[in-house]
Design a protein around this nucleic acid. Structure first.
Lengths: 233, 233
DNA sequence: CACCGCTAAACTGTCGACAATTCGACGGTC
DNA sequence: GACCGTCGAATTGTCGACAGTTTAGCGGTG
């Protein structure tokens, strides 16, 4: 998820890379976090020199970090004007969900053909984790693990490029949703709504999985977009 | 297509932006072109200082250009090692086509519901252009206009994010295919194979369009991947 | 009071320089 | 002959500086 360890999911490598000492990546992570917890709000200008001063570095790595976040869709650039935190509107979130649905349904369909019982068990365990976190009231962590579940599902589709796209989309959605300031649904409901997906996977029922997953995703999409429209007019 | 004019397809804007004086973007275009016509070959190292010398600039904009191309998947970075032209293998091209199929089918399905007769006519005219270019033997241009046709189709789906992704994918495919050094099929066949898509669009037959488009794309995918496996072993 | 142009401050794009790291060649060792 | 460590050249990551542009504030004008 962070930019520090790009290869967080090494395809069977024994050791993951050591955390990069790269200044730019660390700065990008900081900015990402700042966007996530609202210290940077959408539309706000991000000044290279100011960030550089605050971080005690020169402008060069700050610039690279912002360009990285730009490529991930979290920062927008107006040439000679500077960098700004990307401000999502409801239509854009709707587009993002549309894209996510397209990718995830595709990956899930491919996954059904390749999935093993062990894989299904891992996914089921992840759902149990979601329920537990719902009980404990760890909402932030639950959101993170919810994305992780869907990421696992995408990964089982076997197309790593799709997984990378999913990561980008997830980051954007989290940034967009963060500024709602509240969750879009009851955590327990969310956790439970994954059960039907596990069922479909156990039976390797592609059609059913597609149907259920689509409903699952459109539920979230509908809630989020509706909330967004209310907040922003 | 180029990086110089990001808004090359302004959604109804009267004037396109003036060509950016941005050094980084122009450098990126040069490098992109160099990859396209084989002056830079996959796997080759790209040295910042050398590029900067050749272009008569400092390293800073070169670095930004390469990072931009990295975000588009044409350049890969090994930290503290430098930049390299991304070397595609057959499996990766297969993944890219898989992704393209997923996106384009989705966009096409959405397009059917929104498309006007004028839109269909524009697409049909584009197919005629493909045929004409096939006759004239302008293969390079035909390839470009072929992508343009599919881009138009994606755009009619209404999700601009999908279009941007398509652009990225197209760039990667062209870079990957460029090093085959030859076309993967008869230009006239390629042009004609678009006719069935127009037919399906005229009848607003989503199911048929999906079927035909899928076949259309898998044909290209099959040819390219097969050729690639032969060349590279 | 709204609008316009001017001036100063702030900022971006670009540049050249330096330290730390990496790469390649060389010679030494088994 | 293959392997290992060393040394010098080349390269990356980072830094501070400068020119041109943008922005914000201010006073003038209708």
């Amino acid at each position: 998820m962070t930019n520090t360890d790009k290869a967080s999911q090494p395809d069977g490598a024994l050791f993951s890379e050591l955390p990069s000492a790269d200044l730019a990546s660390r700065i990008a992570d900081q900015v990402l976090q700042a966007i996530g917890d609202g210290r940077l709000i959408p539309g706000q200008k991000v000044t290279e020199a100011q960030l550089a001063r605050e971080m005690g570095t020169s402008r060069a790595p700050v610039r690279e970090a912002l360009r990285l976040l730009e490529s991930q869709g979290l920062i927008v650039t107006h040439p000679r004007r500077g960098f700004f935190v990307h401000s999502y509107d409801a239509d854009e979130l709707d587009d993002i969900y549309d894209l996510r649905e397209c990718l995830e349904l595709h990956a899930a369909e491919a996954a059904v053909a390749r999935i093993t019982d062990a894989d299904v068990n891992r996914l089921a365990a992840q759902v149990e984790l979601l329920k537990q976190l719902a009980h404990e009231g760890q909402i932030q962590e639950q959101v993170a693990q919810d994305y992780e579940f869907h990421r696992m599902l995408c990964a089982l589709g076997g197309n790593m490029r799709v997984v990378r796209l999913f990561d980008q989309i997830a980051t954007q959605l989290r940034a967009g949703i963060a500024l709602l300031g509240r969750n879009y649904d009851d955590p327990w409901e969310i956790a439970q709504s994954h059960d039907v997906l596990i069922e479909a996977l156990r039976h390797k029922d592609a059609a059913r999985l597609r149907r259920e997953l689509k409903e699952h995703l459109e539920e979230a999409r509908f809630q989020v977009v509706a909330l967004f429209r209310n907040d922003k007019g």
